[in-house]
């Protein structure tokens, strides 16, 4: 089994392996088997298209958590210039699960804030699997207020399983840290755009996700609790995660239908990690367009719209 492919992608992985083999044979023997390679490549593309045109929510959740999925730093590198990371919450520590700093986006100053996961085991632990502690949210808060002071739009990138449930996190007020961000973001006097690039895990995601526009990459997810968590509570078994993923409606297409998000940023065939260049271009275009639209509004109009949009969330009978 190829670990760079998830379970439902294994047929694609097998084809790709075959293509790779043929290429090696071709190099060795100088026989022209290009035709066969081309045929298999097109077959692989068709297969990928057919698998990806019909993904179940649980499969999308797996792509959102794909070990090769691009993280915050890769987007910073691809989309922004002159990034200067800013560390620490000025009170307790620097949380490595949230990264922030100033940069230029198409020549203009912006503040970037986002979750960062780790690639290998060591880095995963260093980044605490992208699960922030209160100091992470307080760093984010400090940076947002800095952005407000210097009139820089805030761009946030969401990719977390959730806020960290630990002893220290509770002692230092995880709840308060999240709540404070929600309140401050609702009234922050600069444009905010939030993009879910991977997992949008509950309050831990929302704490940097109150925005004028909420975007989601096509194969990212956003939910009130992880499918596993929901399944273990409501179905009494984490194995029913696929059912929970279905029931909760965690995908970009479903959430757009429900008008809970604004924009879906299309991903390249097979997911963001298969073609970072295309992914970066799509995201750059979406950010650029959205930012331009927001900057046409006066700040008071922007805040009024943001408030009305927050108040519109909800579905009830009266």
């Amino acid at each position: 089994m190829n670990l760079n492919f998830i379970e439902f992608e294994q047929p694609i992985a097998e084809l790709e392996a075959k293509i790779e083999e043929l290429r090696l044979v071709g190099d060795d023997n100088e026989i022209n088997i290009q035709d066969e390679i081309t045929r298999l490549e097109s077959k692989s593309r068709t297969l990928t298209e057919s698998i990806f045109s019909n993904l179940k929510p649980w499969q999308i959740a797996q792509i959102a958590r794909h070990p090769q999925r691009p993280y915050m730093f890769e987007y910073i590198e691809q989309l922004f210039d002159d990034f200067q990371e800013l560390h620490g919450d000025r009170a307790f520590a620097d949380d490595h699960a949230i990264v922030g700093g100033v940069a230029r986006f198409q020549g203009k100053s912006v503040m970037l804030i986002g979750h960062q996961k780790g690639r290998d085991t060591k880095e995963k632990i260093y980044r605490n699997f992208g699960m922030p502690r209160p100091e992470g949210y307080r760093k984010a808060l400090r940076l947002m207020q800095t952005a407000e002071r210097f009139k820089m739009p805030v761009l946030t990138f969401i990719d977390t399983p959730g806020a960290y449930p630990g002893i220290g996190a509770e002692e230092r007020g995880q709840s308060e840290a999240i709540a404070r961000n929600l309140l401050v973001m609702a009234g922050l006097r600069v444009p905010i755009i939030s993009t879910v690039v991977g997992e949008g895990g509950s309050g831990g995601a929302l704490a940097i996700g109150v925005a004028d526009r909420v975007m989601m990459l096509e194969y990212s997810t956003y939910s009130v609790i992880s499918p596993e968590g929901c399944a273990s509570i409501l179905w009494k078994s984490a194995e029913k995660a696929s059912l929970a993923a279905e029931a909760m409606g965690i995908t970009s297409s479903r959430l757009k239908e429900l008008e809970l998000i604004d924009t879906i940023v299309p991903e390249p065939l097979g997911g963001a990690h298969r073609d970072m260049q295309t992914m970066a271009r799509n995201l750059r275009n979406a950010l650029s367009e959205t930012l331009e639209a927001l900057q046409e509004l006066s700040i008071d109009k922007l805040l009024e719209d943001r408030y009305q949009r927050l108040m519109s969330y909800g579905d009830f009978t009266s």
Binding site: V210, V224, G249, L255, L258, L260, Y313, G314, D315
Partner: peptide, 12 residues
């Protein structure tokens, strides 16, 4: 949980 993201947004 049964109101999924609608309920998350109530926090905001």
């Amino acid at each position: 949980m049964q109101e999924s993201l609608f309920s998350l947004m109530q926090m905001a």
